[in-house]
């Protein structure tokens, strides 16, 4: 049993403990909660503390009785409003992602093409808003976009417009602020991929007769595919469940599922409904999260080779 002795002596004990500590934490505080959400989504709202019914009841004969209440899900799938809200959330997240990509790609590309000495400064400038408060950055736009806000004031005092522009609490302000808030999450992974790219590949493409634009589409874009996917997922997934931006700058008719969940929970005190909304959202996001995870790990392992 040489192997066992060997393993015990200098492989196992340390290794198992080292894995167990973060594993246990994540299991208890991240994975298990989802099961609880699932469980409570099958409960009914109740006037109690906590405000929901129990799924398990012991009847007189000691018989365990499980009540699965599907009403919440029936409601979500039956009510058009919910369906519309999910669709609208996905749409907002999708177009936010596309716009972030269209704006972020040229910026990331330009930074990657800058000389290394100045590159660090530029990168720092992208990071800086990311490090300052998200909430305050959203707030900044409120002052700019309001009917009596800074932009309208400026334009009116210059005489370009006589009536304030409608830019606040509507779709325009929602998208603008969404793109603004999520842009750094797109730029950083894109930059990380572009900067690693060997410029000689482009030179070789040019040498073989490809014009710059052609070379970009044939070489640069495909090689930055992983960055595009990583950045897009980092924007898309949280954007689906975004609450702060639609709440503060979105229009009254803006339907976002994060806001609905928040309202069910905090305003209606309907915890089972909020749990059901969350469950459906997780199901919708499972594929993009899986995709993100796959590229994330592949990226790190690729470096390893």
């Amino acid at each position: 049993m040489n192997f066992k002795r060997f393993a015990r002596k200098w492989l196992r004990p340390g290794r198992a403990t080292v894995i167990a500590v973060p594993y246990f934490w994540l299991l208890v505080f991240f994975a298990v909660p989802f099961l609880i959400v699932l469980k409570i989504s099958f409960a009914e709202q109740d006037i109690a503390i906590p405000p929901f019914t129990s799924l398990l009841n012991y009847e007189d004969g000691g018989l365990l009785h499980v009540t699965l209440n599907l009403a919440n899900f029936q409601f979500i799938f039956g009510d058009e409003l919910y369906a519309d809200t999910y669709l609208s959330s996905l749409r907002v997240a999708f177009f936010t992602t596309v716009m972030c990509l269209l704006i972020g790609y040229p910026i990331a590309y330009a930074i990657a093409r800058t000389d290394p000495a100045r590159r660090n400064v530029l990168l720092m400038l992208v990071m800086l808003p990311f490090w300052t408060s998200f909430l305050l950055r959203v707030y900044a736009w409120m002052g700019l976009l309001k009917p009596n806000g800074i932009i309208n004031h400026l334009l009116m005092s210059v005489g370009l417009i006589s009536e304030p522009l409608e830019m606040f609490h509507n779709t325009f302000s929602l998208y603008l602020v969404m793109v603004y808030a999520y842009l750094p999450f797109m730029i950083l992974p894109l930059y990380a991929h572009l900067v690693k790219m060997d410029i000689r590949l482009l030179e070789a493409a040019n040498d073989l007769g490809a014009r710059p634009l052609k070379a970009f589409f044939a070489i640069t874009l495909p090689l930055s595919k992983n960055g595009i996917i990583a950045g897009s997922m980092m924007v898309f997934i949280p954007a689906v469940g975004e609450f702060v931006i639609p709440e503060l700058v979105g229009g009254p008719d803006t339907l976002m599922i994060g806001k609905v969940l928040w309202n069910e929970f905090f305003d209606n005190n309907n915890w089972p409904m909020a749990a059901a909304v969350a469950t459906v959202m997780v199901l919708l996001l499972i594929v993009p999260i899986g995709l993100f995870h796959r590229y994330e790990t592949r990226e790190l392992e690729g470096k390893n080779v």
């Binding site: 609880i36 949280p238 929970f265």
Partner: peptide, 29 residues
């Protein structure tokens, strides 16, 4: 190691998971 896939998944998911979901689920926990 056994469960490494789940572990890696639990490591990346919190970064992108909408916060309304993480917040709600932890509260219910």
């Amino acid at each position: 190691f056994r469960g490494s896939t789940l572990f890696a998944g639990m490591m990346t998911a919190p970064m992108v998971m909408p916060e309304v979901i993480t917040g709600l689920s932890m509260l219910l926990l």
